[in-house]
Structure formats: structure tokens, C-alpha cells
Write a protein that binds this DNA or RNA. Structure first.
Length: 300
DNA sequence: ACATCCACCTGCTCGC
DNA sequence: TGCGAGCAGGTGGATG
């Protein structure tokens, strides 16, 4: 379940079902699922066994669980990863990659991942939500983080020379936003994703931040966005936000605001959806390089 | 430093 | 029925 609301749904499930329990056994069924962990399967299993899970934190689309020995279990769901809570006798499905069992004999935590872009790792880290594991140092705060600073984000955004949608997907600028919520937020504020970041008015950028936050909070309230059983909470249940989407996946369907047929455009080996009327494509900008811009600023 | 692109995977759907 | 092409919610590392 890969964007912020879906990952937050999983985090809440981990708090409820996993925090406070002692890990009793670990089985790595597919080495690729721990490729970010340098030690390999045996060492991974040893690093977790006997440790108690103390908390479940999230930044953007990353999750981490502080353990009782100063390490953390770090996870990313990639495109198709799931963390599921399942009774120990539940049969292994085809895409089961890692099983974490607990000393209390209660339900397992299972990492299931069809496309294997996701994975788990163990690394040093503290207990608190602001003690970020070192490998997440490049991940910016997400818009639901109480310490997210809108003014800092907007000034960094406007210093970029790129397109707004590219910037929204850049997890080092703002985290948690993916293809769905980027399209939804841009639709809400009437911006085409190709608009240049450096010419976006501050007020419009501020509206965009509010729209991102709103759409994520609304999605979270409905358990996230699921088009199929690939995107589920820890109990395997789907969220309902897909029925509230206004832009994503709606190519050729009427814009919910103005009725014009929505367009689908290729974007970074994927698709972007937008309304041709509410979100006019920007005029192609004159070719200005950083160099010419610098010259312009240097000349009063 | 910054911006862009592609490899990394499996499975499903579509058109021939 | 088979087969290739295209598509899917993400990211890091290579390249410019």
C-alpha cells in the first residue's frame, strides 16, 4: 500500500498488533526482501530474535519499529509490499517473503510482496519518532508531520528548476506523496503537473500543501486507496478511498468539477491524469538555463 | 549540487 | 490458446 495514507494505515495496525511483543523466530524466504541489510538472512534472523518491539513510526512511506536493543526494524513496502498479521498456521501464499513469529505464540507478522521492490532491514536507531534511522536522513518530513515546515518547503520548492509534479514525487523535498495523491492534489488546486516550480506563486504553493494534507487526511479516514487486494491493512482489508478519487485513473471520464473529459498523459514511465480545462498545460517556457538566470539576477 | 532516467520485479489485460 | 506489448500505487544509483 504504498503512499502515505496507506502506509499510515499499516503503521496503526502495527501499533495495535505488534508493539510490545517479543520476537521469537524469523524466517527469510526470499533474500531480495532484505537486500538493504548487509548481513544476509542468517544475520537478519539473529538480529531480530529475542528483541521486543517498542513502537511503530513512519516518515513518508517508510516505517520503522524500534527494538529493545537499540536497533530498529526498518521497512518499505515498495510498489506491492504488505505487512500482514496472520495466525501462525496460515498457509504461505506465493509471495510470502519474510515471517516474523512472536514468543507469545500469537499471530505472526508477514511481509508479502509480489514485485519485490519493497523490503525490510535492521539498523541502529533510537526509540523516539524524531530519532530517524540514518538511512532515512534524506527523506523530508511529510505533510502530516507536526514539525513539517510549510515555509521551508515552499522556499525550497521555488528554488528548484523543475516541474511541480516531479518535485512532489521527490521524497527529499516532501515525503509521502506518490502518483495518486500528487494527481489528486494538483486537480484540487487546478494546477497542471508540468508547471514550473520556480514560477509558482507562494500563495498557490500554500494552497497546494493544504490540498495534499486534506486529500491524505480524507484518504486515511477511509482506510486508504485500494484498487485491488494488493493494497490492504495488516488484517488484509482494503480501504475505500478509490471511490473518492477525482483525477487518478479517470482518463476519458468527465471531470467531477467541470465535466470535460479528463486526459491521461505519459509521465516518467507512468501516467498522469488531469482536467484539460481546470488544469491547463503551461505554455512551453522559453529556454532559460541556470546560467542565464544567474546572469539575470546579477544584473540590477 | 542538481535534474533526469532507468533498472529493479511479477502479474494482469489487451490486441493480434 | 498463445504471445508480445503495455501497464501498475516507488526508489536508488548512474548519468548528464
Amino acid at each position: 500500500m504504498p503512499e502515505l495514507p496507506e502506509v499510515e494505515v499499516v503503521r496503526a495496525g502495527l501499533v495495535r498488533w505488534v508493539v510490545g511483543r517479543e520476537i521469537g523466530s524469523v524466517t527469510v524466504g526470499h533474500a531480495r526482501a532484505i537486500r538493504r541489510f548487509p548481513g544476509g538472512p542468517r544475520e537478519f534472523e539473529a538480529a531480530l530474535t529475542g528483541r521486543t518491539v517498542r513502537a511503530a513510526h513512519r516518515r513518508g512511506k517508510y516505517l520503522w519499529l524500534p527494538l529493545s536493543d537499540g536497533q530498529v526494524l526498518l521497512g518499505h513496502l515498495g510498489m506491492s509490499g504488505q505487512l500482514l498479521v496472520a495466525a501462525p498456521d496460515t498457509p504461505a501464499g506465493r509471495h510470502l517473503r519474510i515471517v516474523i513469529g512472536f514468543s507469545d505464540g500469537g499471530p505472526d507478522l508477514r511481509f508479502v510482496d509480489q514485485r519485490t521492490f519493497g523490503g525490510l532491514s535492521v539498523e541502529p536507531g533510537g526509540d523516539g519518532p524524531d530519532q530517524l534511522p540514518a538511512s532515512l536522513a534524506h527523506i523530508a518530513r511529510d505533510p502530516l508531520d507536526p514539525q513539517f515546515e510549510e515555509t521551508v518547503f515552499i522556499s525550497r520548492l521555488r528554488r528548484r528548476r523543475t516541474e511541480i509534479k516531479r518535485a512532489l514525487l521527490d521524497q527529499s523535498l516532501i515525503s509521502g506523496v506518490g502518483n495518486i495523491y500528487a494527481d489528486e492534489a494538483l486537480w484540487r488546486v487546478g494546477l497542471h503537473g508540468g508547471r514550473p516550480t520556480d514560477r509558482l506563486p507562494v500563495a498557490k504553493a500554500s494552497e497546494l500543501v493544504a490540498a495534499i494534507r486534506d486529500v491524505m487526511i480524507e484518504a486515511l479516514a477511509q482506510g486508504g486507496t485500494s484498487f485491488d487486494s494488493l493494497y490492504v491493512d495488516v488484517n488484509g482489508d482494503s480501504g475505500y478511498f478509490s471511490r473518492s478519487l477525482n483525477a487518478y485513473g479517470r482518463g476519458d471520464q468527465p471531470c467531477p468539477r467541470c465535466g470535460a473529459p479528463m486526459r491521461r498523459e505519459p509521465f516518467m514511465n507512468r501516467s498522469s491524469f488531469s482536467c484539460p480545462v481546470c488544469q491547463p498545460r503551461p505554455r512551453k517556457r522559453a529556454v532559460t538555463t541556470r546560467h542565464t538566470n544567474d546572469l539575470r539576477q546579477a544584473c540590477p
